[in-house]
Nucleic acid binder design. Sequence first.
DNA 1: CCTGACTCGC
DNA 2: ATGCGAGTCAGGG
Length: 437
Amino acid sequence: MNNSPLSNKNNRESVSISDELHPYNVDNIDGQIQNLLTTMSKVGFLIDVEVINNLEVEVEDLLKKLSVRIFHHIGYDINLNSSKQIAKLLYEDLELPSGKKKKTGFSTDEVTLKKIKKLHPIIPLILEYRTVYKLKSTYLESLRCRIEEDGRIHSTFLLDVASTGRIVSRDPNLQNIPIRGSWGEKIRKAFIVPCEKILIAIDYSQIDLRVLTHFSKESKLIEAFKQNQDIHLSTAMEIFNKKASDITADERRIAKTVNFGIIYGISPHGLSESLEINQKQAAYFIKTYLDKYPQVKQYLDLSRQNALKNGYTETLGGEKRYIPELKSKNHFIRSSGERMAINYPIQGSSAEIIKLAMLDIDCEFVRRKLSSSKMILQIHDELVFEVENEEKDAVIKIVKEKMENVVKLIIPLKVSIKEGVNWGEMTEILKLEMAIK
DNA sequence: CCTGACTCGC
DNA sequence: ATGCGAGTCAGGG
């Protein structure tokens, strides 16, 4: 019986160390995972090119209509892909109120334009044009050109690119395929599996907040996760001092943003921007949060202090990131360093956990000879598999077990599981019709 | 060829 | 002036 949270007896050679600070062994994770990433790249993701082609026609048509309507409104043509020309149109020719200034002129980004959306009918049209053009250029044309002779897209997965230890996908990037809105579903329907196979996607539920809970030992968060509560709702109940049934959708949304903000080391200004509220209110939300979760406050303070003292922060597995910015005399650079000091242990530990789970799963697939099922994609807190129908139950059981038990935190890790015949129509598997362990 | 602006993901 | 990434385009060199 191996007491170590990382009880891999197969081909992980490293010795498990288990102490308070480094509760699991992470010796050379990246070296061990390299082969797996190369295999994932070679396997690739099967694409239904017809779905892409049909969408391209639809999108082409829509872009044409949108540009005609915009040009008809203003009486002349411009390049709608040029933010410089959009700025001239909106802020000079139409004399609309301009927001924040960038290096090269006034901003025309989505947040800015949404604020003046009602002042002129072309603004929603411009926003829609941008969305659809992005889809066409990045996710239709470009992706179609990258389909290889086997009908698949083969992304490259890299370590040693992200400073937090995350895996990076590029050429093409399959970690940022749209998921929200109707376009997200439409594009993801093009990502398919061969007949007799099924797509399985498993993602960690709230892994960053669970890691924060582990580090901070915050009793309220421990309780919430042990009881498997809706964590944003639970935060909303604390911040607004209300019972669950009285929390509105808007209050939950605010709590969700605060939760993310804590992990990113957000300031009242940053929170006010993203919630579109004033800074005083934003500061109040942050203060209330930290009052209600005092161990989180203590952890964050200690995180910054130790980072300054040592010059680095570290993950659960002891991976260090040096942060020289903390000693900068420039306030902006120093604040940025403080945010890195907060964020790195959380994001970096999450990255380690899923990389360890990937290794465990890979080992178990080999051991169980599940040779027709393949891990094809990792998206930070999610793994995607192309699975033989007959192997489905076994795969789900293994992946869930490995992901949830790869390390022992002071609270459980939890995954949610989805299946589908394509990536756009995935349904959650709630009932696990599986044999007893 | 590079940088800035923008938008996509976690 | 909230963390970590990638890709596309315009515009300038």
